[in-house]
């Protein structure tokens, strides 16, 4: 039975950490932040959970096979946006062709690309942590 104070405090802390990560992810256009930072903060919430409640509990929340899928999905979203712009008649990663106006297209493109970055960074960080922790347990 782990420390009661640690369990209660981490349960209070994890939701704000996740909300903050989402804020950093989607507010990166206006303030400091973006996909890299958001992905790291998002994975920090899960790492805190794994440190306090154990690796098995954390792997029940999100399994390594899901993380492997997500790690490739993020890269695929980023590269896929580039492919989509090519099919829409632009250059690779030329977001302007994604929407009717240039500003709207750029906005959509940057949002999608940052989402891809965030997903990949989140899942790779967590995957590395899980791999190391599982190796240490064995």
């Amino acid at each position: 039975m782990p420390n009661l104070i640690l369990r209660v405090v981490s349960k209070i802390l994890i939701p704000p950490i996740i909300i903050f990560a989402l804020y950093v992810q989607f507010h990166g256009d206006f303030g400091p932040g973006g996909g890299f930072q958001a992905g790291v903060i998002f994975s920090a919430a899960f790492i805190l959970y794994a440190l306090v409640f154990g690796l098995d509990a954390a792997e029940n929340v999100i399994s390594t096979s899901v993380l492997r899928f997500l790690a490739s999905l993020g890269v695929l979203i980023y590269a896929g946006v580039g492919i989509a712009t090519v099919f829409l008649g632009g250059n690779y990663l030329e977001y302007t062709v994604l929407a009717s106006t240039q500003v709207a297209g750029q906005h959509l493109g940057i949002l999608l690309v940052e989402l891809g970055v965030g997903i990949t960074v989140f899942s790779v960080m967590l995957l590395i942590f899980f791999t190391f922790a599982a190796k240490g347990r064995a």
Partner: peptide
């Protein structure tokens, strides 16, 4: 051109989009 006030983000994701794609591949 992009309507984004944080120039760091517009450079990172749009003007230097290829670099950032490379960075994501490095993490992957």
């Amino acid at each position: 051109e992009t309507g984004i006030p944080n120039v760091v983000t517009s450079v990172l994701a749009s003007y230097r989009g290829f670099d950032t794609l490379g960075e994501v591949f490095v993490v992957f």
